[in-house]
Simulated assay, not measured.
Amino acid sequence: MRNLFTIGEMGGLFRINIRTLRYYDEIGLLKPEVVDERTGYRYYSARQFERMNTIKYLRTLNMPLDKIKAFFENRDTSVMEQILEEQLEETREQLSRLHSIERKLSNRLFQLHYAMTAPLERIERKNFPARPAAFLKKEISQGENLEYPIRELERTSQLPPAMFLGKVGVSISREDLLNGRFHHFSGIFVLLEEEDNYRGEQTFLPEGDYLTILYAGTHQDSAAYYKRLLACAREQGLECSGDSAEITWIDSGFTDDQEKYVTELQIPVVSRTSGGYTESIGKDF
């Protein structure tokens, strides 16, 4: 029975790349049984098959090489039990992170599909639940580049930059809306999702009825659409009851084609006879 096998034969038997075997030799995880001093050829013995099998098994469990090496340096059932338990816990944490990413991807795709397929220029009355948001109360002119206020919001709320794509909105105060002043904002916010694991201070876009409209364009084009929403509210016996929410669902973060930008305006409304107003966005700030 053969006892020695070349590195090529070892690779073929275990379906493992020769470069990987050389690396295992380099780090001391699996050194050849014999190295020909004259030719430098590596030879592995049949006695090393069990070790190779163990390495391959642990690698299929995504076990780091340093842990595998530590096991062989102190080979015992208790050591194996410990590294398997550690790997199980790490795998569960990875699954949790992947599930969070899956939900984030689903949310972004839903929002993108909504913005791409929802009818434009049509006023609708929608009821929204209370929506959590991180809010920065700040006077911002409409022509101002929003990147700096976004960085301020990111810094003051300790939000990771990855949270911002497709979830940033600005707000015009109720007072300005009622007085026809549509060219500066009273604050900027980012909508929060459970998957963000945000632990900082937050406020809520109030629950209730909103008149909404989507249009092709950006914040710069909003004035005419605010006028349409407010006129529609008067016709329906409604009045603005709080600050607006203005969200650009598709912007330069998604496309270079400005003709594909889509913005949504949302104005909270109540019946004129109800006498009640919802709280303004960011009122606690």
Rank of each mutant, 00 (worst) to 15 (best):
Asn3Tyr: 08
Leu4Val: 06
Phe5Arg: 00
Thr6Tyr: 06
Thr6Arg: 03
Thr6His: 03
Ile7Asn: 01
Gly12Asn: 02
Gly12Tyr: 01
Ile18Asn: 02
Ile18Asp: 01
Leu21Glu: 00
Tyr24Thr: 06
Gly28Trp: 08
Leu29Glu: 02
Leu29Phe: 07
Leu30Pro: 00
Leu30Asn: 00
Pro32His: 02
Val35Arg: 11
Arg47Val: 15
Met52Lys: 02
Ile55Asp: 01
Lys56Glu: 08
Tyr57Cys: 02
Leu61Gly: 05
Leu65Asp: 01
Asp66Met: 11
Ile68Phe: 04
Lys69Leu: 14
Ala70Glu: 11
Phe72Gly: 09
Asn74Val: 14
Asp76Gln: 13
Asp76Ser: 15
Met80Phe: 06
Glu85Ala: 10
Glu90Tyr: 06
Gln94Leu: 12
Gln94Glu: 09
Glu102Val: 14
Lys104Asp: 13
Leu105Met: 14
Ser106Gln: 08
Arg108Ala: 09
Phe110Tyr: 10
Phe110Arg: 11
Gln111Met: 14
Ala115Leu: 05
Met116Asn: 11
Ile123Gly: 05
Ala133Thr: 14
Phe135Met: 03
Leu136Ser: 00
Ile140Cys: 05
Gly143Asn: 04
Tyr148Asn: 10
Ile150Arg: 09
Arg151Ile: 08
Ala162Pro: 06
Lys167Ala: 14
Gly169Met: 07
Gly169Leu: 04
Val170Cys: 10
Glu175Val: 11
Glu175Asp: 07
Arg181Gly: 06
Phe185Thr: 03
Gly187Thr: 01
Ile188Met: 00
Glu194Asp: 13
Asn197Glu: 15
Pro206Gln: 13
Ala216Ser: 15
Ala216Arg: 10
Gly217Ala: 11
Thr218Val: 12
Asp221Val: 12
Ala223Ser: 05
Ala224Leu: 05
Tyr226Met: 07
Arg228Ala: 12
Leu229Met: 03
Ala231Ser: 08
Cys232His: 08
Gln236Phe: 03
Cys240Tyr: 02
Gly242Gln: 02
Ala245Leu: 03
Thr248Glu: 10
Trp249Glu: 02
Asp251Gly: 06
Phe254Trp: 15
Asp256Arg: 15
Asp257Gln: 09
Asp257Asn: 15
Lys260Trp: 04
Val262Ser: 03
Thr263Lys: 07
Arg272His: 04
Ser274Glu: 12
Gly276Arg: 15
Asp284Gly: 09
